[in-house]
Structure formats: structure tokens, C-alpha cells
Design a protein around this nucleic acid. Structure first.
Lengths: 245, 245
DNA sequence: CAGTGGTCTAGACCACGCT
DNA sequence: GCGTGGTCTAGACCACTGT
């Protein structure tokens, strides 16, 4: 099966072999691949070569390795779809809003230059910083850091940093402060997780991330800036409706 | 600098060291990292350990390795922003539409079950399949496969599979056939490139992709289904405007 | 305790880019 | 020709998970 004289590196040939069995369904989601020792013996390869092949599949997102347990075909996780409808002011439809539990840490901070530009305020303006982690069935779902000018929240319960999560999301929270969000701009990127994100979001190495920069507007005024909302690519997808004019 | 007795693996410590110098600016975009031999000698490590550290940084998207040349801090490529405005029927604003050159292959095919469902037609319905590769300054920018029911294009130049790219994009092409696109739905995912995509899009391994499934509507009718539009995560970002109602 | 993947070393040869 | 990263082997010890 594997040709040591081929131009194609041996570890790639082994990866091709295993990949074909995975996409062909011979190894289904959750199944264990043969152990490294078994692959060494079956194909007459050194262990590092086998490990290189497995590493390639891991980078492609096809398998995960678990120490002392084995190498497993990646489970198709239930993907959560985040629709642009989630910004409706009207009551959230089931399944479209925040369905899980959230942990949030609020803090009062002065605007740093980058945030100030996004919010269109002067650097140093007092802001409420909100760091939130959304959990769904115990699995971290998204991580976000966002800012609201404190002035907008003055005199409302949201101005208190000790306050917990905002039920109903940011649009509802701002509505509670008399701020009517009229539009949202999102810029979506794909990037690899930073080392600390692999921990806090509990993602396997090699899992790409959706990174969203969100800006909320009330008319011409910017009322919220989410510097980055990070969603593991194997757990979420984003849905947008665009009206063509 | 590196503690062999630490709990943290040596290769991770080396990766931490190099990462700190990259994000700290000591190695700027395009700069070469020290060679593997240099890192071996400087830190008293085996070559595979050094290579493991570099591989980690490559997976994180921080560096690219080029055979016989060296390891380089990844260039911040000019990122092309794809705005939801690109679907306007009005003349495209500069920089928002398709600015580069496109290669397209058109073919007449019967609808397979998955596409039929997305298009809401019967399986086997004759479709025009369009495979397009968008280039920008010689660099592949996006790859897409999309389908339009042939019936919609009957009697127009677009029905001819031998015809080349559609200037002005799909909305303009459909307008030319008398089909007025009113809305677009996009579902965005992040995933790693498939092996053949690393070639056709010329991306470094470890570059995450934005994968978009697009559905175009004329009223209630589905007039185009793009099964997948793939954009390298280091070359593109998506911008969406959402009106909050 | 046996088996798994994780880490690490030492050494070999190769393909390629530069000068 | 020399230096670079790419591939591959053989062997060692470790940490962790199962029984």
C-alpha cells in the first residue's frame, strides 16, 4: 500500500490512506484509529513517521489524539447556528438567542486608543468592559470582550460592575437603559486559537476559530464595541440575511 | 532561559520564547527566525525538539517555513474585506466588488439531492454549475461552486456553458436574465483547508478558511445556491450590516 | 501492569535555494 | 558547495488511562 520510493513522502501516503478510510466511513465519528504501534508494524514505519501522519490529520481537523487513550475520528459536534436575527429587539425566538448559561465579568475601565476609535469616543472615556463566556451543555461556546460607554448606562442597574450576566443580551440591556439599537456591523475573520484560548474554550489544537468584531449603532452613534467574539469553528456557524437593494 | 526540569515541555518553552519575540516585535513580519541548527546550539536541544516548537508556531499561524530558505514571521497580508454591500444591484462601489480577475468553468449538470434541497427544486433538475476562482494580484482569493437553475437563464447568453466569467457578479448576471435578486442568506463556518485546497488556493498548511454557503432569493424563490465559497482566512474578512428591527 | 500517546535525543539522507 | 528545512529511523523515558 505504501511505496517508500514514491515522490510523495511516506507520512503523507499514510495520512492519505487513513483519510480515505475516514471520509469513506470505514472509521466513523468517535472511532479509534489503530494505535501508533499497530500502524508502525503494519506498514513497516518508524514511530515518528506514523506520528507525523497522525499530526497531519489532526491539523486537518479530522482526528483528535488523547493521551494514553488513542487517536479518534473527530465527532461531528452539534453546531450552534448564530443568526443575525439574534439582534431583534422583539422577544427572541427559541434557539436563536443565548440558550445556555453565561459567565460575565464587568469592570470599569478607561478607553484605550483602539477601543476609543471603534466606539468613536475620546481615549480615556470611562467604559464598562464586559468579558463573557457562554456555555452550552457545559461546553464553552463563545468568548467575548465588549465595551459600552458608561455614560449610556448611568443610573441603571447595568452600570454596576458587580452585576452578573445580562439576560436577553446586549440589545435588551441597552434597551433597558433607553438606548435603541438600530443597526449592527459585524466583521468576521477566521484564525487559529491563541494558546490561552485553547484552554478557556477547551478546543483541540488545530481547531480554527471564527473571530467577530461587532459594532452596535443607535442611529449614527456607536453604543457598543465588541473587540472580539471568538467562536470555535467546530461548534458554531453564523447566519446572515442580506436584503439586496 | 529553558528549564529542562519544568513541567512545561521544552518545545513549548521554546515556542513561548519565540512567540514572545514575535508578538513583542523583536521579529517583525517577513523576518527570518534563527535556523534550526542555531536554535539547537543556542538552547542545547535536539533538532526534532526545535522542529516541534516551530511546528507549533506554524499551527498557530505565526510563522511559515520555506524549504531551503528558512522560517519566517508571517506577513500581514493585505486583507480583502467582502462586504454584504457587494450584493447591491446598483453599480458596485470601488473596492467592494470583484476587483481582480476570475476564472470560471461552467457546466450543465442535473441537480444532486443536496443541491436540489438548497435550491428547492427536484433532484435531477438541469442546472448551470459554475466553478470560479478569483485572483487578486496573482494570489487566489476565493474558490466557489454554485448552481443556477438553467430554466432561469434560458435564452440568455449566460445559458451557454462556454461563456466565461460573469462581469458584475451573480446578481448582475441574473438581472441580465430578468431575475431580480431580493435577498441573500449566508451561513459562515471556519474550517481547515482540504488537501486539494492548499494547492488550488496556495495557502500555507495551518491556514484556516472561511467557508460560506450562500443562497440567493428572488422573493420566495431560490435562484442561486453556492454550496461553498472558500476564502483563505489570512486574505479575507467578511463584513455584514444588520438592521435591528 | 500493560498499552496508549507525549516528549526528547542522535543521527542519517534528501531537495532545494542561494552564491 | 553550503546552509536551509523536509523526511525518516531507532531508541529511550514519561504521564496517563484502563483493567
Amino acid at each position: 500500500m505504501i511505496d517508500a520510493l514514491s515522490d510523495r513522502p511516506v507520512y503523507r501516503q499514510l495520512a492519505d490512506l487513513l483519510r480515505a478510510k475516514i471520509v469513506g466511513g470505514e472509521y466513523g465519528p468517535g472511532d479509534a484509529l489503530p494505535s501508533e504501534i499497530a500502524l508502525m508494524e503494519r506498514h513497516g514505519l518508524g514511530r515518528n513517521t506514523v506520528r507525523q501522519a497522525v499530526a497531519l490529520l489532526r491539523e486537518e481537523g479530522l482526528v483528535v489524539t488523547r493521551q494514553a487513550r488513542g487517536t479518534f475520528v473527530r465527532d461531528a459536534l452539534p453546531v450552534r447556528r448564530l443568526s443575525s436575527d439574534r439582534y431583534r429587539r422583539a422577544p427572541q425566538r427559541r434557539g436563536s438567542g443565548a440558550g445556555g448559561t453565561a459567565e460575565a465579568i464587568h469592570r470599569e475601565v478607561p478607553a484605550d486608543p483602539a477601543v476609543a476609535e471603534q466606539l468613536r469616543v475620546a481615549a480615556g472615556t470611562p467604559l464598562l468592559e464586559r468579558r463573557a463566556l457562554l456555555l452550552e451543555r457545559g461546553l464553552p461556546q463563545q468568548l467575548s470582550v465588549s465595551y459600552v460607554p458608561l455614560e449610556l448606562l448611568a443610573g441603571t442597574p447595568m452600570a454596576d460592575p458587580a452585576r452578573g450576566p445580562w439576560p436577553g443580551g446586549t440589545v435588551a440591556a441597552l434597551a433597558g437603559a433607553g438606548v435603541r439599537v438600530t443597526a449592527v456591523r459585524e466583521v468576521v475573520r477566521a484564525r487559529m486559537p491563541r494558546p490561552e484560548e485553547t484552554r478557556s474554550l477547551a478546543v483541540a489544537v488545530g481547531t480554527p476559530m471564527l473571530a467577530i468584531t461587532r459594532t452596535m449603532f443607535a442611529g449614527e452613534r456607536v453604543v457598543e464595541a465588541a473587540v472580539e467574539i471568538v467562536v470555535p469553528g467546530d461548534r458554531g456557524e453564523l447566519e446572515y440575511h442580506v436584503d439586496v437593494r
